[in-house]
Design a protein around this nucleic acid. Sequence first.
DNA 1: CTGAAAGCGCTAACAT
DNA 2: ATGTTAGCGCTTTCAG
Lengths: 335, 335
Amino acid sequence: MTVSRVVNMKGNVKQATAERIQRAIAKVDYRPNIGARRLSGGRTYQILMIFNNPNVTWTAKLLIGMMHACRNIGYHLLIEGVGDYEGDTIGLPIDYEEITKLLDPSRIDGVILPPPICFDRRLLEIVREKAVPCVRIAGTPAQDIQLRVSIDNFAAAYELANYFISEGHENLAIIKGPGDYVASALRFEGFSASIRDHGLKLSPSNIQTGNFDVQSGNECARELLRLKDRPTAIFASNDEMAAGVLSAAQESRIRIPEELSVAGFDDAPIARSVWPKLTTIRQPLRAMGEKSVELLESYIRQINNESDETVQSNVLLDYELKVRQSSGTCPIAKH
Amino acid sequence: MTVSRVVNMKGNVKQATAERIQRAIAKVDYRPNIGARRLSGGRTYQILMIFNNPNVTWTAKLLIGMMHACRNIGYHLLIEGVGDYEGDTIGLPIDYEEITKLLDPSRIDGVILPPPICFDRRLLEIVREKAVPCVRIAGTPAQDIQLRVSIDNFAAAYELANYFISEGHENLAIIKGPGDYVASALRFEGFSASIRDHGLKLSPSNIQTGNFDVQSGNECARELLRLKDRPTAIFASNDEMAAGVLSAAQESRIRIPEELSVAGFDDAPIARSVWPKLTTIRQPLRAMGEKSVELLESYIRQINNESDETVQSNVLLDYELKVRQSSGTCPIAKH
DNA sequence: CTGAAAGCGCTAACAT
DNA sequence: ATGTTAGCGCTTTCAG
């Protein structure tokens, strides 16, 4: 029993005894049997991640972070894919009945929701009703579900626009993400704000909306490149769409970055596999995955009164502007 | 007890009783508590996948298949990344001590090894010693570890070369994968064999070796495109390298597919996100993931004498040649 | 501050 | 063909 107390850092144990036990634990490489723990205590030591993002690469990076954190704190990670996450499109229907079953507190201690499922109002409602501890990744705080891990999307896009403008660009364009992505909306806000703050204008014809895949980036770019007053810099709200911009430019024999600057968002693998390599905002996905698990766990400890520290509900991690070959000085400003 | 027998399809139960129990199970949506099961029986109901492939996208597809299969048969999937799987390079050292710990039969019932870690002799030796049931993905059968899921890499590459030749190409080139990938070596063999069988020759200068990333594909392609007698068709052993070939051709203003045909392997997302889209061999990664779990489970059942059917040790799944815009008729053959 | 007793849900082994 | 007993390793509760 005293061993149990030491392992769980719960209850009072004499300092000396605790140390003696710690030593023994290290010696035998003892690790609690998670099954027995689950059987006995009320907790399940399982965390669920539900994802419906068709961009598996993106989700996989988060996943790796979650895996690591879970192992460190002795949790199991369950992964549930909903919707057609193998296809190329997004926004496919979610089976709420199935999800409701999964969210049974007798099977999991908490849930992590990455985008875009973390923006789904109906799902959030279910989570709230079932009172399942929940951490959302990206977006803004939502009703009754405060736990969240993100980067500052507004600031990141603001900084990117600043960079474009510092390179002499005045005619900027943006390809927004799908409407239901709150994170993407914030990027748009940040981008616009910088333009406004520099006394420039973002004309409505310079605003396109894609759906985060390469094809849509290509199509939006065609529209933009066809404009009489063609923009000299395009910000696509993720790297896949930015890759589509690149291919559209190549089709039209527009040289990058000499005639057109392009930037993406995420620093996904594709950012470095296209040519030229993409200027982008790096999002620390792996760290975000780790943090989300840690945040969830400390919250679970808190509501079980196993911890006295208050849990910070909003974790903002650092992003980073990566300038690569797809962007440069504005051609018009050159002379 | 009788319920347990029904659930596990083990021992003799009267038909009528079994059906009655089945109905009750469905009614209550009963699902066995995996923790209790583990605590009681000898088995852990956990399968481990160890991966060290830096191409997370590739591994993620497998993973999704494994997840699904695991849920269906009531297993947990543990995922362990070793090596620097976040970086862009491969072949980094594996921590054998750590792996040896993970392979403890008291913690897992079996292990699944995707490439390239499934080609590691020392690891296979450890697996054999510890007598952990093991399924390998890709490659050829190995000493004492017979369970394997794959496609026929030789035949696939053979078919691809056939296709090139049927389009009139006679001067073919190949970019091989790293030496330790057995699957990649088989692709080389198949490609060469087809060329030979058609009475053509694969000149040594038309053989390059990359390391499966875009950059190396680009570099190998530069070598090939610099040749006096430039090849008209290049087969890169995966899609990432093929994307590199594309960019090298674009740098040299060589039009695709008019002047050069390019093909990759895998049908990874990048195959459809580059421009022009890549001709490639589709590998059913998700199905391979599912099969690997199912194969492992039936083997585990067999060695525990819970099943009388003999387990097929080699599962070969179907590949598919996908012809897209990056390849076409040989320019020389046109007139 | 430490320990003893009971029980979580399941299965192996042993009855019947 | 079905039921009974015991125990897996842990935590909760209650006693010292």
